[in-house]
Design a protein around this nucleic acid. Sequence first.
DNA 1: ATTAATGTTCAGAA
DNA 2: TTTCTGAACATTAA
Length: 279
Amino acid sequence: MPELPEVETMRRGILEIEGAVVVAAERTACSKRPIAITPRIDRLNKRVKGQKILRVDRLGKRVVVVMENLDRLIFEPRMTGLVLIADPPSVEHLRFRLTLKKSPVKQVLFWDRRGLGNVSLLSDEQYQEKLTSGKLGPDALAIAPSEFAETFSKRQREIKVALLDQSAVAGVGNLYASEILHLAGVHPQARCNRLSKIQYQRIHDRMVEVLEIAIEHEGSTLSDGTYRNALNDPGGYQNQHRVYDRAGEKCPTCKKDSIQRIVQCQRSTFFCKKCQKKR
DNA sequence: ATTAATGTTCAGAA
DNA sequence: TTTCTGAACATTAA
């Protein structure tokens, strides 16, 4: 379930394509329903063919390949998508291939088991519009603590739910939201407008810390084993999880209460009711 | 055999 | 404006 650390790991895994020249973009033979690719693959291919790759960026939970003419080829993994340069986990879920020359790696692949992910090519203008539309907030690793507190304290929803809202801050997903709030000592059901400045400072600190450490470990590969880096190797941060998917286990902070699982917005939240305060 | 659960994003509605 | 719900899809566990 790629969140910021996993997508950043994918980005770093394909950095060596910088300077490469695109030979072709194509759909791959795949027994599943085709994923969304915009514009249509033949048009997309025409536009990227011969383009030199300037650099590889990340926008929230998306990998952004920037072309010489500033067109952006965007990989959005959603639930189970992977950006690979190594052989994929299975051929029947391989969805897209970008062939390259003048590069140490000859191709970038997009593999997606569930097929909720997508690939798109945006002009510079379309990309700038996306950045300024307000649908995507500042990146979790770039937002200033003051702006973070300001944005969140205005809202009335529960803090865990707010952290998942990509228009507030981009990059945090379900797994890291639980981890961040546990380390910060903040209850996931606390209302945003009831939290103090100090609590927001703690949440922000822990958010940056958790995401950076998770990147060092190349993200989290859960028990289903889906997430992989660009070389098809699993991440290592799952061994550092303090609460996620650990319902019933003793809280690593207080070592007294056990970790609870609750449902917020139809998704699991894990926390310790002794260590995490509503205000 | 059916159903729930998994977790990201968007459209549409409240 | 803000918040909430359901759908997109594939696979596994109960």
